[in-house]
Computed example of a mutant assay.
Amino acid sequence: MKLERLSTGAKLYLRPIGLGSGLPLAGGRARFAAVELSVRQVDVVEIVGTFAVEDAANVVARLPAVLAARFDTLWTRLTTPRAALALPTGALDLATPQVMGILNVTPDSFSDGGRHDDPAKAVAAAQAMVAAGAALVDIGGESTRPRAPHVPLDVELARVGPVLDGLQGQGMPLSIDTRQSAVMARALAAGAGLVNDVSALAHDPQTLPLVAAAGCPVVLMHAQGTPQHMQDAPQYDNCLRDVFDWLEARIDAVAAGGVARDRIIVDPGIGFGKTIAHNLELIAGIGMLHGLGCPILLGVSRKKLIGVIDGDVEAHDRLGGSLTLALAGLDQGVQLLRVHDVPATMQAVRVWQALRASGGQA
């Protein structure tokens, strides 16, 4: 690697590879034995080379000072355990993969729209998810599938309010999936402990100060465009690094707004303004996002890319593909899986953990 010749104006990236052995990745069960080093100048990405983890000190010593400082920051983030998430129901340990169950109380979500329109059914579904092992139940009253129409605030509140009321006082670990500050406030008051915003707190200007004041964890998701138009020919110069850069800038902005960095979770936004090729690139390289220093949430459950790959199968027939993609994420150290099928995913996670333990990697 010609490290000494790299331009100080380039941006440096580290992607953990050699998965399965070596150092714990972000303090979790996944491990990495090597790293791919790449740089980007303007829109040109160059894969400089790969090195074993034990050679990290030698590599950084050969870099120009500016790039060496960037290397040290990314290396620290790759190798430092993530702090547990503080929730009203207790601390959520991120050294072990956790599952977030999806509870859409909408008539038009792509997979389960209309299934939980009765609040009693929604409450029962949430209880079943927690009983099956879900660490969080993510309640949403607005579909953000491609081409989804805008949902008025009063309608969204009317959908989620009765469900929140039905679950209040049960000690349920709840999160709220919304872009609206009024919905966030309603959910937090009812006991929800985490905000999951597909707009990364950019849709409603009141969301950032609200989350900062609440002190709750928040998921910042990448999306190119709005739900109505995000699949209109999405384009990237380099999807994996474009998403990395966007999330890095958004983390800085949200932290500057008063949200502690150890309360920020990132989501690459699979299916949100991405082609099938973009989605696969992100999933295959998602380990690079550990360089952001935040826990990673992966939402691939029943997504369209599975149906396209497998001959246009319907959403309810995509469990096998959902589990395959989830396990690919676990191999790269993803801490949170957002899923429709909690029991099957929990089984897959437990088997994955047992395999790691049998190899002396627990």
Rank of each mutant, 00 (worst) to 15 (best):
157 L>E: 13
149 P>T: 05
162 P>W: 09
176 I>A: 06
170 Q>W: 12
153 L>C: 10
169 G>A: 03
152 P>Y: 12
169 G>M: 02
172 M>C: 10
159 R>F: 12
169 G>C: 04
150 H>V: 15
163 V>H: 03
175 S>L: 00
160 V>I: 15
148 A>R: 05
167 L>I: 08
165 D>I: 01
164 L>T: 03
173 P>I: 09
185 A>T: 13
156 E>D: 05
148 A>V: 07
152 P>Q: 13
175 S>N: 02
176 I>C: 04
170 Q>N: 06
174 L>C: 06
175 S>E: 06
178 T>R: 06
148 A>E: 05
150 H>T: 14
156 E>A: 04
160 V>S: 13
148 A>P: 07
158 A>P: 02
177 D>A: 04
153 L>K: 08
184 M>F: 01
179 R>D: 08
187 A>W: 05
182 A>F: 09
165 D>H: 12
158 A>V: 08
174 L>Q: 12
181 S>L: 04
161 G>L: 10
157 L>G: 09
161 G>P: 00
160 V>R: 12
153 L>S: 14
184 M>G: 12
187 A>I: 01
184 M>Q: 11
186 R>P: 02
168 Q>F: 04
160 V>C: 10
180 Q>H: 15
165 D>P: 00
158 A>H: 11
154 D>I: 09
154 D>N: 10
187 A>N: 10
154 D>P: 00
162 P>D: 03
172 M>D: 09
150 H>P: 02
166 G>F: 09
176 I>L: 15
184 M>I: 12
185 A>R: 13
154 D>L: 09
168 Q>E: 12
158 A>G: 15
167 L>V: 07
175 S>Q: 01
171 G>N: 08
176 I>G: 03
161 G>C: 05
177 D>Y: 06
171 G>R: 06
175 S>G: 03
185 A>P: 02
164 L>W: 02
162 P>H: 11
185 A>Y: 04
178 T>M: 06
152 P>I: 07
182 A>Q: 14
164 L>M: 11
166 G>W: 07
178 T>F: 03
170 Q>G: 04
152 P>C: 11
187 A>S: 11
148 A>H: 03
151 V>P: 00
150 H>M: 13
